[in-house]
Amino acid sequence: MSEKSENLVEIRHLKEYFNVNVGFFRSKPLKAVDDVSFSIKKGETLGLVGESGCGKTTVGRTILNLYKPTSGEIIYDGKPIKTKNDIREFRKKATMVFQDPYSSLNPRMTVSDIIAEPLDIHKMSPSKEARRERILELMGYVGLNSEHASRYAHEFSGGQRQRIGIARALAIDPEFIVCDEPVSALDVSIQAQVINMFDELQEKLGLTYLFIAHDLLVVRHISDRIAVMYLGKMVELADAKEIYDHPQHPYSKSLLSAVPVPDPKTARSNKRIVLSGDIPSPLNAPSGCPFRTRCAHATKKCAESMPELKEISSGHFAACHIL
């Protein structure tokens, strides 16, 4: 029982299918997220990596109930999120930082209105002065000047815009933030600043992150544990150091071999595992293990059944038949 209260967010068998029209009247389910389970402990950062289109963003959005899950359970702080009331309460504790700092800020709103929007929606500021003070406090957290409050989003650079987005996410004093590739639209020097800011904020405010990214170095820097996704399924989940040092699943191995190493000597000695072929369309995913079409170790069994996510060493989970 003690372990349960430790988990802030728990996902059980989450499925998210979208209906895609093929032809005039027929539609087919697109399995964006297919049976994913994991949990995030309080104060922890879980990194979620995978290539484009593997369902990372969908997982993040479904957790926040922006998409209605097709099936599965989202348990927050020991309570399942089901009814509209649950969702409304949940929205006061969990927020999101978006990938694109350009389209995620309304061009017709001033920075202070953008930041205070969640407060206004939940009617959480008792007076105008309190609202203004809260805005300035939030801008201080993310390193924005108080003079910026009355300006419009288009007057800022990408990094500053992302800070505005983060300040908005912090407005309601959240416990849990889904960061959906928050730095991938920024250039490298700004990335470092923003990432460090995420770290500092976590320490200061005791936040829990689900950090979605495709930049493996960024994820390694910020995450306590890392989950690897492939084609809507979770293939490996382990501590950040463990997964970098001893990746078990063949997909994780090849993914991690693609990480650029700053030292040319070690880079030359490292062997890159290059996958053949493209990621299959999620509309007609391969039977059994979705990775088998590109896996060097694929056997007959892989085509027949999807391997379970099993614990191969303490805290290290992987879904592969050969392990």
């Binding site: 959005r61 926040l64 922006l66 409304r88 929205r91 006061k92 927020t95 999101m96 978006f98 990938q99 694109d100 389209s103 995620s104 800020l105 309304n106 017709r108 709103m109 929007e117 969640p118 929606i121 939940h122 987005g165 908005r168 309601i172």
Partner: peptide, 24 residues
């Protein structure tokens, strides 16, 4: 646009989104 999604993630209903984001 993502700012609409952001408003919905913050708990905004249809009325809020239309009047605060879409019509302006």
């Amino acid at each position: 646009q993502e700012y609409v999604l952001a408003a919905r993630a913050a708990g905004a209903g249809g009325k809020w989104v239309i009047f605060k984001h879409l019509i302006p």
